[in-house]
Amino acid sequence: MKNFLRFMKPGDWAMLLLAAAGTAALAPIAFSGGAAEKAVVRRDGVVVAELPLTQARRIEVAGAMGAKGTTVIEVQPGRARVASDPGPRQYCVRQGWLTQPNAIAICAPSHISLSIAGRTGSHDSLAY
């Protein structure tokens, strides 16, 4: 180890200190991961699923329309959508991908809603 220390010129030490300080300054990011964004699925206002927006997933939720079909929620990194719903007018499906915090898609006939939560957003609620 001592052998290698002789390769360290004064500027190298300075550079190493700078790099180490930079790395240390970034460290808090690693511990702030608890409030990651997620997609929240509710039925009749009750949370039925919370999916982190970090990995792609597809889930089926049984809504109020019973035998007519289930609602399919699709999550991809950074976004979520209602992929299909048995409702007659398809408003929540046609809304497409939700990416903004607090955006919400409501499938009224199924009593199901999908919203994005977790990060402090610039809006209290977003619907189209």
């Binding site: 390769f7 360290m8 010129k9 004064p10 500027g11 190298d12 550079m15 190493l16 790099a19």
Partner: peptide, 11 residues
């Protein structure tokens, strides 16, 4: 004189 391969490598 002041900076060696270590600085370059870190950069």
């Amino acid at each position: 004189r002041w900076f060696g391969p270590v600085s370059q490598s870190l950069a």
